[in-house]
């Protein structure tokens, strides 16, 4: 029998969402006390944890030091229990290194690194449960963690994936949709200015479809930024309440 029907004629996706709807997002900031900043996010069944240290002096080899700005060091890993089948190697494989690099590029574009010359900011993200859109969850978690650490950024960086099924762009893909065979892209956006921090797509897509797909991803990113904004504000309120006491 043919594979799954990713989008029904009535316009509902497998899990009941409409094409442009996001999965349920839940987030918390300041989950660890020892780190300078930390955050936990759930996007559907994808769960990610981000921890930020810094800015601090450059550790390890001094040669990495930049004299005009801070070094961003990112490390991505997946928990061994994050997928349905137990993962053998949680980090250090090609995919993880690639993901670390992408995160580094994203946050170099967002953090005001020139404020901290000759220092280093570490961002560690871990996927606790994986159900598609790992990159986006990491970026969103890391954004919250960076804010929690008080490191100034140009804007929130929000990331979201989008895919293309039967000539309709779908926002925020879950794992089943990602592995359904269509083309998907991941996009990180600085919503206020509309600048794209990172755009990644590794399958072929006809040029005619690209605009529609990017538009869908950008719209999704903007809605995500509202959600994140809400989380940050609520966190601030809670914290200020505590400090007042």
């Amino acid at each position: 029998m043919a594979g799954l029907e990713l989008l029904s004629d009535q316009g509902y996706r497998l899990d009941g969402r409409k094409p442009s709807e996001l999965r349920k997002v839940q987030a918390r900031m300041g989950v660890f006390a020892q780190a300078d900043g930390s955050a936990y996010i759930e996007q559907g069944n994808t769960k990610a944890l981000a921890v930020v240290y810094g800015p601090h002096e450059v550790r390890g080899s001094r040669s990495k030091t930049l004299h005009d700005r801070a070094v961003i060091n990112c490390q991505y890993s997946m928990a061994t229990f994050s997928t349905a089948e137990r993962k053998r190697r949680p980090h250090g494989d090609r995919k993880s290194s690639e993901m670390s690099l992408h995160l580094k590029q994203t946050f170099e574009a967002a953090i005001l690194t020139q404020l901290y010359p000759r220092s280093q900011i570490d961002i560690y993200v871990k996927i606790l449960q994986s159900d598609g859109g790992n990159y986006s969850a990491c970026v969103n978690a890391a954004t919250l963690a960076v804010i929690d650490a008080g490191v100034p950024m140009r804007d929130y960086v929000c990331a979201c994936s989008a895919g293309f099924v039967e000539d309709t762009p779908l926002a925020d893909l879950c794992h089943t949709e990602e592995s359904g065979g269509g083309t998907s892209l991941a996009l990180a956006l600085l919503p206020r200015g509309g600048q794209i921090a990172l755009l990644q797509m590794d399958a072929r897509l006809h040029q005619d479809h690209l605009d529609a797909l990017m538009e869908a991803a950008m719209t999704a990113c903007r809605s995500l930024s509202n959600v994140l904004d809400g989380v940050v504000r609520q966190h601030l309120q809670e914290v200020s309440l505590l400090t007042r006491e």
Binding site: L14, D15, G16, R17, R23, K24, G44, N45, A84, E85, D131, C174, T176
Partner: peptide
Amino acid sequence: VMKIVREHYLR
């Protein structure tokens, strides 16, 4: 045998 968890939104 694999356990599959999927979200199911009700509208």
